[in-house]
């Protein structure tokens, strides 16, 4: 039996060429942006897998391919052993589809302002013709809101409450996998704590599996069972939180952890990281991180390091040991 979610050689390339006429006049070729490149990982059932990375690292693109909002250019996503992009049996696809839900970053943009909360929450079930009697009320209680909130509109709620509504909607079709794309980035710290606790509780009670996409290392450390670090569309390191945070092997992970503000870092003076994420349309040769890497050697600019096993983790660096 393979893992619950299995991602193999996943690649997504976007065509970012200028319009045809501009290309002719300016004598330019087509331009392609490789947002995700050859990414492999597996998620075990009832665990939380976290993808971390800075903007442009491709973490959201992976999430979108997992739920089927984008088609992979190459590679496969298998959920419960079914490849959603290639499976021909409609019933099997539909069965797996209803097991996947998504929670988005901005709770202000992801709820229809003209719909009542009840209609928003039961939509995943109603659209498939299921029975929705009392469903919204039950879910609202489950996420810590009041049953009388079902008749209200989204604007009557605060950011944290709206994110709870989003979670209730995601739970409506009784999914087994929820893809959470920056679920707490738009929330204040104290509200974030409430939402994260709710997510942990629901995971235990309902046996959920999460793919958590975020840039916030503190959230990752608290929530994840396994972490994948992305840089410019590639996985550079994958490990369990304890070993990743205590002893990061990839220089990029080390840089990311050093740069994150520390609660006890009073007046900390560290040399800040060098440079910025390079242009993904024209990535550096070899290891994409080598222009910013403090320990880069000749081989780094020539050969791209493959992911290799190192104890209980994988890392893509020539020099890591």
């Amino acid at each position: 039996m393979s893992a619950f979610v299995s991602v193999k050689h996943l690649t997504r390339i976007f065509d970012v060429s200028k319009p045809w006429l501009n290309r002719v006049i300016e004598r330019r070729g087509k331009a392609f942006l490789t947002a995700v490149s050859d990414v492999d990982f597996e998620i075990e059932e009832r665990t939380t897998y976290a993808l971390v990375g800075e903007s442009g690292s491709g973490k959201s693109t992976i999430g979108r391919m997992l739920v089927g909002l984008l088609k992979p250019t190459e590679g496969d996503v298998e959920i419960e052993g079914v490849n959603l992009a290639k499976e021909s049996d409609v019933d099997r696809v539909a069965a797996v589809r209803s097991d996947i839900q998504m929670i988005f970053q901005d709770p202000f943009a992801s709820l229809n302002p003209r719909w009542r909360v009840r209609d928003i929450i039961v939509e995943p079930v109603a659209s498939k013709g299921g029975d929705t009697t009392g469903l919204a009320e039950k879910l609202l209680e489950q996420v810590g809101l009041h049953t009388s909130d079902a008749g209200k509109f989204p604007h009557e709620f605060s950011g944290g409450q709206r994110q709870r509504i989003c979670i209730a909607r995601a739970l409506a079709s009784e999914p087994r996998l929820i893809v959470c794309d920056e679920p707490t980035s738009a929330l204040d710290v104290s509200v974030q704590a409430q939402v994260l606790n709710l997510m942990s509780d629901l995971k235990d009670d309902l046996g959920l599996t999460y793919l958590l996409i975020t840039h916030d290392l503190t959230v990752v450390r608290h929530m994840a069972d396994r972490i994948g670090v992305l840089y410019l569309g590639r996985l550079v390191e994958e490990a369990e939180p304890q070993s990743l945070f205590d002893d990061p092997k990839h220089p990029y992970t080390q840089m990311l952890l050093d740069a994150a503000p520390k609660m006890d870092g009073f007046g900390r003076e560290i040399p800040p990281p060098q440079g910025e994420i390079p242009d993904p349309i024209d990535p550096p040769s070899g290891c994409a991180f080598h222009p910013r890497c403090p320990i880069a050697v000749d081989v780094c600019s020539k050969d791209r390091p493959e992911l290799r096993k190192l104890g209980n983790r994988t890392v893509a660096c020539h020099l890591a040991e």
């Binding site: 710290v189 104290s190 704590a193 409430q194 606790n197 503190t218 608290h222 609660m263």
Partner: peptide, 23 residues
């Protein structure tokens, strides 16, 4: 005190984050 305790950083090793009730 509540604000500091509710940051995930402060909760290392704890199963649940500290919550300030309400909003």
């Amino acid at each position: 005190h509540g604000l500091m305790a509710s940051t995930p950083l402060a909760a290392q090793g704890q199963r649940r984050l500290h919550q300030i009730p309400g909003a």
